[in-house]
């Protein structure tokens, strides 16, 4: 698959194209263009660094939604061994926007759950653009309760625009499904590690986001409402989305400053999609480190700590 570039990445795209062209000419004509190529590569590195070190929140939103960004099943492939996908909520359906199953992390059995987006049009529709319906949350809940019974830590991967706003979803109790997950997750007696890998969209994200530690990939976002939604409500214009993205503090650096995120996992230059395996390795190290730390606590202590952590969210004046 050829690299897709976002608008603000155009200078990078142009330099990469030029380098490829020179490489082609040089191999074809046996001309020595190596100096020129090296010079351009250096320029590319500098340009890329300059762009990625100065991303606006709205540009981060574009990266978090990048069509080539690694999704949950990509991370699963890189992070775990022996993955067995498990399907269905046992009541209504198997929601393809939410995947889950058992696997090993560094040899240790764990439960893995995450939102799943689709890559091409057909797959996007099958995955409902990563927007779960109640059965998705109920599948997740079933797997999480199972994990508790079998003493398996839970790792969740968050990547959704939000819960699906549909007629059937409401009929089948979207609100109750999300609320139930929040409540049950707050009391499960196994470690829960949550990672935002792409879009952390509102209640649909939080429904698998209550845990002992919250990690964020560097160019992911986590927000109570999409910038577009916020802009159309508060500014009465979806075109103000870049302003909303700024104000909402949805990027990993802002959220980590605000104490809402425990650790930001650095992504390769250009984003996780430029080197998915490298991104996954950084994430794996952090996950293993946090998991070892959390496993030192007795289950009751773990639950109590998680509860206190939840109570501490929010700033008020006394």
């Amino acid at each position: 698959m050829s690299q897709q570039f976002l608008e603000f990445e155009q200078p990078i795209a142009e330099l990469e194209a030029k380098i490829r062209e020179l490489q082609y000419v040089s191999s074809d004509n046996a001309m020595d263009l190596e100096d020129e190529i090296r010079r351009l590569q250096e320029k590319l590195q500098n340009k890329a660094r300059q762009i990625y070190e100065n991303l606006t929140p709205w540009q981060v939103v574009q990266l978090a939604r990048h069509p080539q960004r690694p999704y949950t099943l990509d991370y699963i492939q890189h992070l775990f061994t022996d993955f067995e996908e498990l399907h269905g909520d046992r009541n209504f359906a198997d929601d393809k926007a939410m995947v889950g199953g058992v696997a090993r992390l560094d040899g240790q059995p764990v439960m893995v759950i995450g939102h799943q987006k689709g890559r091409d049009t057909k797959e996007k529709i099958r995955r409902n653009f990563g927007m779960p319906r109640p059965e998705g949350y109920r599948k997740a809940l079933r797997l999480m309760s199972m994990a508790e019974r079998f003493h398996m830590p839970i790792l969740t991967f968050i990547d959704t625009p939000g819960a699906y706003p549909g007629i059937g979803a409401e009929e089948r109790g979207q609100s109750e499904a999300i609320a139930k997950n929040l409540q049950v997750m707050s009391g499960l007696k196994v470690p829960i590690l949550c990672t935002v890998i792409g879009e952390g969209g509102s209640g649909g994200a939080l429904a698998i986001g209550v845990g002992d530690v919250t990690l964020m990939m560097q160019y992911s976002t986590y927000s109570v409402i999409s910038p577009e939604g916020c802009a159309s409500i508060l500014w009465k214009s979806a075109e103000k989305a870049p302003d909303a993205a700024e104000t909402l503090a949805i990027t990993s650096d802002r959220l980590s400053q605000l104490g809402l995120v425990d650790e930001v996992i650095p992504e390769p230059l250009g984003g996780a999609h430029r080197a998915p395996e490298t991104a996954a390795q950084s994430l794996k190290q952090a996950l293993c480190r946090h998991l070892h730390r959390l496993q030192e606590h007795a289950p009751e202590a773990l639950v109590e700590q998680r509860y206190q952590r939840l109570l501490n969210y929010g700033v008020v004046k006394h």
Partner: peptide, 11 residues
């Protein structure tokens, strides 16, 4: 209150 408000759901 952005993500702080989302977390009130969990709390």
């Amino acid at each position: 209150e952005s993500l702080f408000s989302l977390m009130q759901m969990a709390k």
